[in-house]
Simulated scan of single mutants.
Amino acid sequence: MNPNKFSDEEIASVYKAIRERRDMRHFLSTPLEEGQLERFIRAAHMAPSVGLMQPWRFIRITDSALRIAIQQHVEEERIATADALEQRSNEFMRLKVEGILSCAEVLVVGLIDHREKYIFGRRTMPKMDLASASCAIQNMWLAARAEGVGLGWVSLFNPETLRELCQMPSGSQPIAILCLGHVNEFYPAPMLELEAWDKRKAISDICFENSWNTQSPHPD
């Protein structure tokens, strides 16, 4: 008997949140319940971080003109991305890639400036600050899903432009625009799978043993 183990019901809930988390693009404008956003940010702030540097910062976008400006910039980058995709350009342009103007809340997530002074765990792997902030976003994603709220991570932007729009200090780095809000329903599978953009790889394709591309005995 493992005294540190959660109950069977609690374990099932954790795996259910992981399994049913979705990168959402379709939102309702219904406001979040009082205290929900604060709970989600608190969940994010509980994430692990290299050297406990806690590199994440969250900017809540409440100015409608700023929200529109952010969406317009994302649209510009969407078109530029389509051009770069060449043969898949038209296919990409049919995808819905953000819900900035329709969701209840928009957050810009950024890495702090002066990150170079944090050396613990980053001497040879400086991008661990990004990995840490990604853990924070995943925490928020799972907390939101557990409460029936959708979240979408938008990465179609130029960091310099978004930094200027949000008046972030030099040396900081925006890494995500998060759309949060109620939804009619969660996608039954990741949207890009439903749209046949790509499909999830088998476990046997991503799990090796002892060396790269050495087949793992673990079954799918």
Score class of each variant (00 low, 15 high):
residue 1 M to L: 03
residue 3 P to F: 10
residue 5 K to P: 04
residue 8 D to T: 09
residue 9 E to F: 00
residue 10 E to G: 08
residue 11 I to C: 15
residue 12 A to P: 08
residue 14 V to Y: 15
residue 14 V to R: 14
residue 14 V to D: 13
residue 15 Y to S: 02
residue 16 K to L: 02
residue 17 A to T: 15
residue 18 I to N: 05
residue 21 R to T: 12
residue 24 M to R: 11
residue 31 P to A: 07
residue 32 L to N: 09
residue 36 Q to C: 02
residue 39 R to T: 09
residue 40 F to V: 14
residue 41 I to T: 05
residue 42 R to C: 04
residue 43 A to Y: 01
residue 45 H to V: 05
residue 45 H to M: 10
residue 48 P to L: 04
residue 50 V to N: 03
residue 51 G to R: 13
residue 53 M to T: 07
residue 55 P to N: 03
residue 55 P to Y: 03
residue 56 W to S: 07
residue 59 I to Q: 04
residue 60 R to H: 12
residue 63 D to Y: 05
residue 64 S to P: 14
residue 66 L to A: 13
residue 69 A to H: 01
residue 69 A to K: 02
residue 70 I to Q: 02
residue 71 Q to E: 14
residue 72 Q to M: 12
residue 72 Q to H: 14
residue 73 H to K: 03
residue 74 V to S: 06
residue 75 E to H: 09
residue 76 E to K: 14
residue 76 E to R: 13
residue 77 E to D: 05
residue 78 R to S: 00
residue 79 I to N: 10
residue 81 T to D: 00
residue 81 T to G: 00
residue 84 A to M: 15
residue 85 L to W: 13
residue 85 L to D: 01
residue 86 E to S: 00
residue 88 R to Q: 14
residue 88 R to E: 14
residue 88 R to P: 01
residue 89 S to L: 04
residue 89 S to T: 00
residue 89 S to Q: 07
residue 89 S to K: 04
residue 94 R to A: 12
residue 94 R to N: 13
residue 95 L to R: 09
residue 97 V to P: 08
residue 97 V to H: 12
residue 98 E to T: 12
residue 99 G to V: 00
residue 99 G to N: 04
residue 102 S to D: 11
residue 103 C to L: 06
residue 103 C to D: 09
residue 104 A to D: 01
residue 107 L to P: 09
residue 109 V to C: 11
residue 110 G to F: 01
residue 115 R to C: 12
residue 117 K to A: 02
residue 117 K to H: 08
residue 121 G to H: 07
residue 122 R to F: 01
residue 123 R to F: 04
residue 125 M to V: 14
residue 126 P to V: 03
residue 128 M to A: 07
residue 128 M to H: 11
residue 130 L to F: 10
residue 133 A to D: 05
residue 137 I to L: 02
residue 137 I to V: 09
residue 141 W to R: 00
residue 141 W to G: 01
residue 142 L to E: 07
residue 142 L to M: 11
residue 142 L to N: 08
residue 142 L to K: 09
residue 145 R to M: 11
residue 145 R to A: 13
residue 146 A to Q: 12
residue 146 A to H: 11
residue 147 E to I: 03
residue 150 G to V: 04
residue 150 G to H: 06
residue 151 L to T: 15
residue 151 L to F: 12
residue 152 G to F: 10
residue 153 W to C: 08
residue 157 F to R: 02
residue 157 F to M: 01
residue 157 F to T: 03
residue 160 E to H: 13
residue 160 E to A: 11
residue 163 R to D: 06
residue 165 L to Q: 02
residue 165 L to K: 05
residue 166 C to K: 04
residue 172 S to N: 10
residue 173 Q to N: 15
residue 174 P to L: 07
residue 175 I to M: 07
residue 177 I to A: 05
residue 179 C to Q: 13
residue 179 C to W: 13
residue 180 L to N: 04
residue 181 G to I: 10
residue 181 G to Q: 04
residue 181 G to W: 09
residue 183 V to N: 03
residue 183 V to D: 07
residue 183 V to Q: 06
residue 185 E to K: 08
residue 187 Y to P: 00
residue 189 A to M: 08
residue 189 A to Q: 12
residue 190 P to W: 01
residue 191 M to F: 15
residue 193 E to Q: 11
residue 194 L to H: 10
residue 196 A to I: 09
residue 199 K to T: 12
residue 201 K to S: 03
residue 203 I to A: 02
residue 205 D to S: 15
residue 205 D to N: 14
residue 208 F to I: 07
residue 208 F to Y: 06
residue 209 E to P: 09
residue 210 N to Y: 13
residue 211 S to F: 01
residue 212 W to F: 15
residue 215 Q to Y: 00
residue 215 Q to C: 03
residue 215 Q to D: 05
residue 219 P to H: 14
residue 220 D to E: 14
